[in-house]
């Protein structure tokens, strides 16, 4: 079992990210959290999961403690930054978010829980990041924020926070139907050199170890999340990019139709879960 430390990384590399000795070993050493029974019942019998469980229940007690108390949660540094930006004018129109939306805790309540949402003008669904940038370009005449910029991620988290505790409730019928189907298709389509679909890890094997990682259902209710790895807030599409990269695939572009469709389908898979933004994850 034991091998020279010099060649171990090479073999790890050759393996991609699936190591089996490690699976059994890590499980015996790591007391994984008690995740079963911590979720909710799916609203309809055709839902692919028997129990819908937030990602926080798959994390260690240390990580859970970091999310439980808003003061311990470093994601709130982002919230405070966004709170200050909310009423700061930007762009040629001299407006701030507050100029139209006044008090965020009142006006933004429930907005983030229902995203992505159908946009009648664009004839397609938009997610929170896109909606924020539409506000910036159309109403404020300001430059749109780049995806992954601190500003856009902070503001997305701040708006989502106003739905904290409310159930994730995307609309997937009517004109959203083809987008839902597109997202579902992507979820079950194998991708990359490792030839894995989202479902391979998150539907079939959550609550198990994938190498040293204890897999969750891949729910989106905590996003944007503060990742211990990156030590910053990560938007959902960046995490999805990471997943596809991990299976040695070529990720779709953030905010692309594909990722918005997948975001919609993921939201439906987590329907009824309370919004946790900003969550804390590994």
């Amino acid at each position: 079992m034991k091998m020279q430390s010099a060649i171990r990384p090479l073999i790890a590399l050759a393996l991609g990210f699936i190591g089996v000795a490690g699976v059994a070993w890590a499980q015996s050493a790591l007391e994984h959290p008690d995740w079963q029974g911590k979720g909710i019942k799916p609203p309809t019998p055709d839902h692919p999961l028997q129990e819908i469980i937030s990602g926080i229940h798959f994390r260690t007690k240390e990580t859970q403690a970091m999310q439980e108390d808003d003061f311990n949660n470093p994601g709130f540094l982002a919230i405070e930054r966004a709170e200050a930006m909310w009423s700061k004018p930007d762009g040629a129109a001299g407006k701030s978010c507050a100029s139209c939306h006044q008090d965020a805790p009142v006006t933004m309540k429930g907005v983030g829980a229902a995203m992505p949402k159908w946009n009648e003008v664009l004839k397609k669904p938009v997610n929170l990041e896109q909606q924020i940038n539409m506000c910036r370009t159309e109403r404020m005449q300001a430059e749109p924020w780049k995806f992954k910029s601190q500003e856009l991620t902070d503001m997305t988290a701040y708006v989502r926070l106003q739905s904290r505790g409310m159930p994730v409730s995307p609309k997937v019928d009517g004109p959203m139907t083809p987008w839902f189907e597109k997202g579902k298709n992507l979820y079950y389509t194998r991708n990359g050199q490792l030839d894995l679909a989202c479902a391979g890890c998150h539907e079939k094997n959550h609550g198990k170890f994938l190498r040293a990682d204890f897999m969750s259902q891949g729910q989106s209710n905590g996003f944007p999340v503060y990742r211990l790895r990156d030590q910053r807030l990560i938007p959902l599409h960046e995490r999805m990019e990471g997943c596809i990269f991990d299976v040695r695939g070529e990720p779709y572009k953030p905010l692309s139709d594909e990722f918005v469709a997948l975001e919609l389908y993921l939201a439906w898979r987590g329907i009824g879960l309370p919004v946790e933004t900003p969550g804390v994850r590994n």
Binding site: L15, G19, V20, A21, G22, V23, W25, K208
Partner: peptide, 22 residues
């Protein structure tokens, strides 16, 4: 955890048994 046999399927027959994640 994923059983050894199952994971061999996943790993497509590579020398999976040797990896030490920690």
């Amino acid at each position: 955890a994923i059983s050894r046999r199952q994971a061999f399927g996943l790993g497509a027959g590579v020398i999976v048994g040797l990896a030490l994640p920690l």
